[in-house]
Nucleic acid binder design. Structure first.
Lengths: 245, 245
DNA sequence: TAACGTTTGTTCGCTACCGCACAGATACGC
DNA sequence: GCGTATCTGTGCGGTAGCGAACAAACGTTA
């Protein structure tokens, strides 16, 4: 059984009124997610949804030829598995843990039951899905019109916004898979950012040194997404954990 | 007042049970949408949602610099304005009529009222939104990994699937805006398709001559999207109009 | 210490697409 | 019929990113 104090680290759950939270509480399980682990595969049924605490999950869309693109990133501000209550049952995208950590897991039918009571949980999850839609749309246009340098800045910013500190463990290779580009391209862009003093990295360990500087180098996509999340999800009491959005 | 027989041209509405349809009927207005007309602008409040009959609407995401990319296309299988019931109130994207025709319009509050009764309408609209999510994700990955020729094929196929026949009125310039590329690029790709006998075009009038051929030239993205729409929305009685999905 | 796998740095030619410029063809209004 | 706007075709140099290949630096294990 979880102590309520730990639950508030997930923003979505922290917004729930006590009554609904109490109904969910017995069914929430704390799990450890490992980097690289898959939470869902395209077209496969989902048995659980996940509310990340200090972990980050990437939603990927994969082509026939095997190349992939991240279409959204989920941290402690959200959840993985919206397609369940949207009525799809199966997941349309692959969900990969891109930064290991803890998450709360909830069996599908418990989530559906609560959702179809049509109370706060439903409103909250729908607003979150709307934020996800915005993120996906903005990612799509960013892939099209902004260069790799800008995309890398956006990606780093979205990641550290969802982490407790300004460091992340991630190789260039991984980032390349997320952005749908070559590893060498990431190495080159990351090199520029390091020379500019914005980040430092070493063998899969990246430190963001100058967040504001990154924002200046990023395209507007980061801000657009962030502001939409704030608008849709920050209308209630703030979340208790440190850097959460 | 609308005759019920005309309503069935929109797939979403045709799936509604009679009771719910009767509640909506008095509030549905038939409107003519003109090519190029904007139904919603990014960040602006929406007063109506639209159920296209023989018109097609593009959802666009626009960058600061003014370049745009289509993130989804909506025809008589869907509706424009999902963000209303998702809780966003304002539209996150620009909705532009890309093929003029008729649509049914419903004032926001009537839609919300029906949605929050948590009946068939809610389930249906959520399933549709799920299909929209899939389309957006697939479009994003397509922009990233597939070349212009393939994207053009996908785009043409998605368009004629939503039209009563195999011709559409659309200049290369417009298509370029949708795909987020140069007009010259579209001219070149369209030229190839014409030489291959798959389409013919002349000053903004495009005829699809060989749909199967187009599908062979397209990337898998078209099929993925189409099958997901079929799966999510074709589970009930078929729609009455001719070529509807 | 030595061997090996992983991560990053760098180079080279190649391709798709960009941005620009301009020309021809067609449709439309006066 | 004529002028004009729109649509399409084409040709240029430029560039961002690709694919492949390889080297160097680092960490881990034996």
């Amino acid at each position: 059984m979880l102590r309520p104090s730990n639950l508030t680290q997930n923003a979505l759950l922290s917004f729930l009124p006590e009554e609904e939270m109490n109904r969910l509480l017995p069914h929430l399980e704390r799990v450890i997610l490992k980097s690289g682990q898959s939470l869902s595969e395209s077209g496969q049924p989902m048995y659980y949804v996940y509310f990340p605490l200090d972990s980050i999950i990437s939603l990927l869309c994969v082509t026939e030829s095997g190349s992939s693109t991240e279409i959204a990133v989920v941290g402690n501000e959200g959840m993985v598995g919206v397609s369940l209550f949207m009525g799809g049952d199966t997941s349309p995208s692959r969900a990969i843990v891109h930064s290991g950590g803890q998450a709360l897991r909830l069996a599908s039918h418990h989530l559906k039951n609560e959702f179809y009571r049509a109370g706060s949980m439903q409103r909250l999850l729908l607003r979150y899905t709307q934020a996800l839609l915005t993120q996906m749309a903005q990612t799509a246009v960013c892939n099209c019109h902004h260069n790799l340098d800008q995309q890398l800045c956006r990606w780093l910013l979205l990641s550290i916004d969802r982490l407790p500190n300004n460091e992340l463990f991630m190789t260039h290779e991984w980032i390349a898979n997320m952005l749908g580009v070559r590893r060498e391209g990431v190495t080159e862009s990351a090199g520029k950012l390091q020379k500019a003093g914005l980040i430092s990295y070493h063998r899969g360990h990246i430190c963001v040194l100058d967040q504001l500087g990154l924002e200046e180098h990023a395209c507007e996509c980061y801000t657009v997404v962030k502001e939409e999340y704030d608008r849709l999800l920050d209308q209630r009491q703030p979340i208790l954990s440190g850097r959460a959005m």
